[in-house]
Computed example of a mutant assay.
Amino acid sequence: MRAGPGPAKFVGDTAAVFVREILLFLRDPFSLVFSLLQPLIFLALFAPLLRGAVATGGAGAAGMGTGGTGTLQWFVPGVIVMISLFGTSMTGSGLLYELMTGSYERVLATPLDRSAILVGRSLKEFAPLFIQGLLIAVFCVPFGFRFYPVHLLVGLVLLGVFGIGLGALSYALGLACKGREWLFWSVQQTLLFPLLILSGIMLPLETGPEWMRLVSRFNPLTYIVDAERTLLGGTLGSTAVLWGAVAAGLIAVVGLVVGIRTTRTTI
């Protein structure tokens, strides 16, 4: 029985799109495996170089709220955030492929609410994020990473909210760049790396110049990274976690608003 118009139909359509996207994801499990290769390479090759910068009790580690728990405790949260950043910012490329093949137009021909299409697709981003983040954390336990299950769950939920917003923005960019795939990648790459570097994901910002530390305060990803390091360091009640949740929530709201508006007015 089809849901009637209004909120019930929107929820039903969103669930239908979400299930469709999850099934497509489950049919290609190798994409999950290959997406883990890059962060594992970063952990294997980059983390040892950080021992001097974020050694226990060092200025960089203390500044990032790890409580002096070591290099992995500082670096693993950044890698998990990096998975979220890379994965969700590229989701618009999949939409571009659907636009080129005509499959997206077939979805639009259904009675699905256009807003539900965007929201359902965005919600799907939480599933791979959760699996990847959990696998990375578990993988690092034998190497000295302290595993706090509840804290990790909270951190992954926070990243899921962030991923929903960023995924929606990526879909909006994909729609805006219809027929110009080069433009999507140009914009995505131009924005991605400054956000990554100016958030302190890979290196402590405390050792950088003053202008870089100042600019990082206007980067919402900085607060999300700080929140993840605080959570995975074993602390729940902290202002860093609160600010991270606020930043993730703002990105989700802005992403969904922009994405829904673009979906309704494009094609």
Score class of each variant (00 low, 15 high):
Ala176Leu: 13
Pro48Arg: 12
Gln188Cys: 09
Pro128Phe: 04
Arg213Lys: 15
Arg20Met: 09
Arg2Gly: 15
Leu72Ala: 08
Leu192Lys: 07
Ser93Arg: 12
Leu203His: 05
Val215Glu: 03
Val76Arg: 04
Thr235Gly: 00
Leu166Arg: 08
Trp211Ala: 13
Tyr171Gln: 15
Gln132Ser: 10
Leu85Asn: 03
Gln38Glu: 12
Thr263Asn: 15
Phe126Gly: 08
Leu231Ser: 12
Gly249Pro: 06
Leu23Arg: 14
Thr262Lys: 13
Phe86Val: 13
Pro7Ala: 14
Ser122Tyr: 01
Gly87Glu: 06
Val161Ala: 06
Leu198Thr: 14
Ser122Lys: 09
Arg229Ser: 02
Pro194Lys: 05
Lys178Asn: 10
Glu98Pro: 05
Met82Tyr: 12
Val187Glu: 11
Leu153Ile: 13
Gln132Ile: 04
Ile164Pro: 04
Phe86Glu: 08
Ser170Met: 02
Thr91Glu: 14
Arg229Asp: 02
Met212Phe: 07
Ser216Ile: 04
Phe145Val: 10
Ala55His: 12
Gly249Phe: 08
Leu231Arg: 04
Ala172Met: 03
Pro77Phe: 02
Thr239Val: 14
Trp74Asp: 01
Ala137Cys: 14
Glu181Trp: 08
Ser103Lys: 11
Trp185Asp: 13
Ala47Trp: 01
Asp113Arg: 15
Arg114Val: 05
Ala53Phe: 05
Ala168Gln: 07
Met82Lys: 05
Leu175Trp: 01
Phe126Tyr: 13
Arg146Met: 05
Ile164Val: 15
Arg114Cys: 09
Ala168Glu: 03
Gly255Asp: 08
Leu159Ala: 10
Ala62Ile: 13
Ser122Glu: 08
Gly174Lys: 08
Gly63Arg: 08
Leu250Phe: 06
Thr263Cys: 14
Lys124Leu: 00
Gly237Asp: 12
Ala16Gln: 06
Ala8Ile: 08
Trp243Thr: 06
Phe184Trp: 02
Ala252Glu: 06
Gly92Lys: 02
Ala15Glu: 02
Ala8Arg: 13
Thr262Ile: 09
Lys124Arg: 10
Ile201Arg: 06
Pro194Ala: 05
Ser103Ile: 03
Leu256Lys: 11
Asn219Glu: 12
Pro142Leu: 06
Gly133Phe: 02
Ile224Glu: 05
Leu49Tyr: 03
Leu134Glu: 04
Leu108Glu: 11
Ala109His: 03
Leu236Asn: 11
Thr69Glu: 13
Ala62Cys: 04
Arg121Thr: 12
Ile83Pro: 00
Gly237Thr: 12
Leu175Cys: 03
Leu183Met: 11
Leu232Gly: 01
Met100Ser: 11
Arg146Ala: 13
Pro220Ala: 07
Gly160Asp: 07
Leu40Ser: 10
Leu40Met: 14
Gly255Phe: 00
Gly160Arg: 07
Ile260Glu: 09
Gly65Pro: 00
Pro48Trp: 08
Gly144Ile: 07
Trp211Pro: 11
Ile197Cys: 02
Gly237Tyr: 11
Phe139Asp: 05
